[in-house]
Structure formats: structure tokens, C-alpha cells
Design a protein around this nucleic acid. Structure first.
Lengths: 161, 161
DNA sequence: CAGTTTGCGCAAAATTCGCGCATGAATTGG
DNA sequence: CCAATTCATGCGCGAATTTTGCGCAAACTG
């Protein structure tokens, strides 16, 4: 799923935006269905979609899984404050973050917390283990704070375009 | 993209898990390609995928867009503390959260913050407007704190299965 | 005004998917 | 231990979908 040749997009008309929105809701909709919904022929839908792909606006298509059905009953956000910003220490820390599967996303933030991690675990024991066996023992980590998700009121929705 | 009849899954074998992982990375991979990658025939890939869909493990397929390419240069996490938990006030608040397109996700959290909102904006002015014109004026909101994303070190990755 | 570009629909070609069918392994019951 | 049933698998054909070529019309350019 790599659209190698990036070609700068001149402009996005209204149909492009609506197509992007539709694809964010259901990427398996057929070109024919999208065409009738947007008032266009199926071939044109395909052409526009390909144009959006090579332009890099569409990074790819992914399956959205149900965490609860997979037994991932604990979602949490973990903030990390660093004890040091020495490059080598930070590098090993980011490597661990990228390697650990429970951490699905990680951001560097403004404010007092250096990193924000999004975490999925089977249970609280798993979260506890991540924090106390992986994060806290790391030499670059000073403080770890975790907030557990009680309820998801709005699931990862489409981007505002 | 609705798989109406839910059928409880007896078990997930190793191939199922690898198939789920692969579909999380590229949902447009052909059954043939997935088959050779997992050592299975294309028809079996299709059958297993359908089983995972009706079991509710796969919620759907979505396009992943590039926020930066769309001009959404500001990502932020906004924490909200409530002034009251009166049901009617909370209800109007959640309705606003669900309606506002800049807010792509929202969770209720443990800890001192009641809500965590994930926000995408074109610029800081947009974020500022959301906070000062929408969130803070709401009667149920006591305090709003925003942390801006400086860098995404790990993008929304596959669930740990 | 002429030439070029861009976007469109139609239809054919190529690819991919969906589903029935037969074979082989595994499990259960006697 | 063996037979019968069940279950998963691979194969192949027809259907659905995507992709591509082509002609046409509108918009843009010099």
C-alpha cells in the first residue's frame, strides 16, 4: 500500500472532499455505489481515488477492529516525563515505544508531559506491567502518569475536511 | 459495511490473528497476496475474513488520510473538567462533542479530567476558537486544558493481538 | 479564435471476489 | 481400534468490480 510517486495536488473540489469523507467511513464501498452517491460514474470515482492516493492524501486502507471483541478491555493514556533529554537515552526510549505492541500511538507534547502514549491492554495487570516493568525502569523516564479510559463517547472519526 | 448477524467466535487460531494484523496494515491487499503471505489459499482467506467480519471482530474498513496533506497542521489533546454532572447539562455537552467535526475522538477518563478530546485543526486560531467559543462558554464546563502535539512518533498502529 | 488541457461517460479488458464441490484430516462414539 | 461424522482446505467457475482506452464537450491559454 504505497503510492510512490507523489504528485502535488492542484486543488480539491467539492467532490474530492466528499469522496474522502465517504472513504473514511467505508473504504470498501464500490466505485459504483460511491458514484451514485456523489453523482459520478464509477470510472471517474476510480480515477479520482487513484489521484488522491498518488497525491499522498490517502495513506492507505486499514481494517478497524473491535478492541473489546479481541479481549482488549483496558484502554489508557499514559503521560511520560523525561528525566533527561540526552540523545542516546531518548533514542532507546523511543525504540521501546515503537517496539511495544500495547502502545499503538505516541506523541511528543507541549506542556509538562513530554510524551503521551495511547495504550491497549488485556487487563489492568498488563497496564501495570507496562508501566512498572518497561517504562519506569528506563533511565530516561522520570515520571509516569496513567489515565484509564472509562467510556469512548466518540470513536476515531473522520478528519474534519 | 454492516455485518449484521453476530456469531460468537469459538477460537482464533494463529492464522486468524496474523490475518487481522495484516488487514490492519493494508485492508486492500488481495486475498491472493494475503494467502501467499500466510501460507493459505485465497479462498480460505476470504472465508476467514468473512467469519471475522460476522463475528464482529472487524468493524469495518476505512481510509487513512494524511492530516498534514489536508492542511490540518494542528493536532491537540484537550482535557475538560466539568463544573456539574447534571444530566441535562452533560447531555448538551456530549451532543456538542459529537457534532463538532474537529473533535475526532472523545473519552471519559479516570483522574481529575472528566473528558479527553482529540482535536484536529487547520491552525492555532481554529483550536483557540474551539476552546474559547465552544467549550469554555458551555455551562457544564469548568476548566479546559489543551496540549498540542509537537510530533507523532508512532502513528495509530495495529492493536496488540 | 485556435490549440491545449481537463474532466466526463461508455464499453471492453483485466482483475478480483464469492460460492459450490470434492478431498483429506481430526474428532467423536461404539 | 475402527467407523462415521464433522470440519477445514484447495480448486475452479461465474459474477462482480476495477481498470483502461477512447471519443466528446467544456474550460482554460496565448
Amino acid at each position: 500500500m504505497h503510492f510512490l510517486q507523489y504528485h502535488r495536488m492542484t486543488k480539491l473540489d467539492d467532490i474530492d472532499l466528499r469522496l474522502l469523507t465517504a472513504l473514511q467511513e467505508d473504504a470498501h464501498a464500490t466505485a459504483d455505489a460511491l458514484g451514485t452517491a456523489l453523482g459520478l460514474s464509477a470510472s471517474q470515482i476510480g480515477r479520482r481515488r487513484q489521484r488522491l492516493e498518488v497525491a499522498g492524501l490517502i495513506e492507505g486502507y486499514v481494517a478497524k477492529l473491535d478492541p473489546a471483541a479481541l479481549g482488549l478491555s483496558v484502554q489508557a493514556f499514559v503521560t511520560v516525563q523525561m528525566a533527561t533529554h540526552a540523545p542516546d537515552k531518548v533514542k532507546t526510549f523511543t525504540r521501546i515505544v515503537k517496539l511495544r505492541p500495547e502502545i499503538t500511538s505516541a506523541w511528543t507534547m507541549t506542556g509538562d508531559a513530554d510524551y503521551l502514549l495511547r495504550v491497549y491492554c488485556m487487563d489492568l495487570a498488563g497496564l501495570n506491567e507496562l508501566i512498572h516493568q518497561v517504562l519506569l525502569p528506563h533511565p530516561a523516564v522520570a515520571r509516569v502518569q496513567s489515565q484509564i479510559v472509562m467510556d469512548q463517547m466518540k470513536t476515531d472519526g473522520p478528519l474534519p475536511i
